[in-house]
Computed example of a mutant assay.
Amino acid sequence: MPRRTATLIASTLTLIALLCVALLTPTPYAEMSPGPTVNTLGDYGGDTVIQISGHPTYPATGHLNMTTVRVTGADYDMNLVEAVMGWARHDDKVVEHDTLYPQGQTAEQADQENAEEFSQSQDSAKVAALRELHIPVQSRVIVAAVVKGGAAEGTLHAGDVIKAVDGTAVTQADQVATLVTKHKPGEKVAFAIVRAADVKQKTPPVQHLTLTTRTSHDSGPTRAVVGIQAGIEHLFPFSIDIKLADVGGPSAGTMFALGIVDKLTPGSLTGGHFVAGTGTIDDNGNVGPIGGISLKTIGARDKGAQFFLTPADNCEEAAKDVPKGLTLVKVKTLDDAMAALADIKSGDDKALPSCKS
């Protein structure tokens, strides 16, 4: 065999071997890319996204699109070739796997966490929207979870309403822990509760019971605990359902709140414009930062968005790479977002608070 041919064959085999290694060797990376954008004023997957009953609603035109990021799964092993290709693509972002799935989080754990955050974001969006419209929302403190093996197991149950601790009425979830930790481990603490099964009664019976506190064993300071997590349950004056499958996390809260407000008020918040955005929201209407902002702006612009409501804490990052034709609008609160939509509707773009890098 001629030496040149032998060299060529050897080089080819070496290249094939290296390629096989690159394809088979997993890397500690994951990939993020622009995900679907969904108009909160419209339909998705055969369902109306925001469904309201028991209160007058009004037609809304234009778009108030929530945006998403698509990520590789927790159990997906990205190979070297995929990582290099991801780094080369402008519309994708390769990050360390632990950034998305910390401490070896499994796919099931990630899905559960995302579902819980998504549910909480919907709840807060409803509260913020109704408060924006000055519609009262009542709330009560409940047992959100019971720790397995804790003092409360078998005595308190998820959904039970906590009326008082040691005779002190509670209206905020953190009051429960504050009152319990006034005790030393081994001391008794008194609860006044309404069972979850009784809350719909006109005059639900209040039960009084006593638990013996135990010593905490978590990463926090040593303290007295009873093994429950308290939470807030909101009581809405009418039905608001958000139907959106295969989406998780808290980042759609702001756009859900705006969609609810738009449907509950005459006219259109957008004036027919295509507005997209992102941001967490709390019960008081404060807009919080999210991850993957640059990918969300790309996804929004690809779908036709003209304006993008951007959490103030994400503005600097988002402004570094703004898709052509998209205007970033800085928002800190739901009030800011409402004011921005009014300017967009009136055509006063110069009044919009912009993001700067």
Rank of each mutant, 00 (worst) to 15 (best):
D218Y: 04
G279D: 06
K182W: 05
L258Q: 05
A177N: 10
G288T: 01
P250W: 10
A197G: 03
V180I: 14
D241G: 03
G277K: 00
P205Y: 09
G291L: 15
G231P: 07
A177W: 13
P205I: 14
T210I: 09
P289H: 12
T178Q: 13
G277E: 00
Q172E: 12
G285S: 07
T168W: 10
V199S: 05
V165M: 13
T280E: 09
G271W: 03
R214T: 15
R223S: 13
L258G: 01
L235K: 12
V161M: 15
T222E: 04
Q175H: 06
G248L: 03
K263N: 05
G231M: 15
T278E: 02
L179I: 07
Q229E: 10
L235C: 02
V226R: 15
L244K: 14
I293N: 06
D166L: 10
T280F: 13
G248K: 11
L269K: 07
I162G: 10
A164S: 07
T254S: 08
T178M: 08
Q207L: 07
L179E: 09
H217W: 10
G271E: 06
G248Y: 05
R195S: 02
K184H: 05
H234L: 08
G292Y: 03
E233S: 11
A173P: 00
S216A: 11
G186T: 13
T212C: 06
Q229G: 10
T210E: 10
T265K: 06
T168A: 14
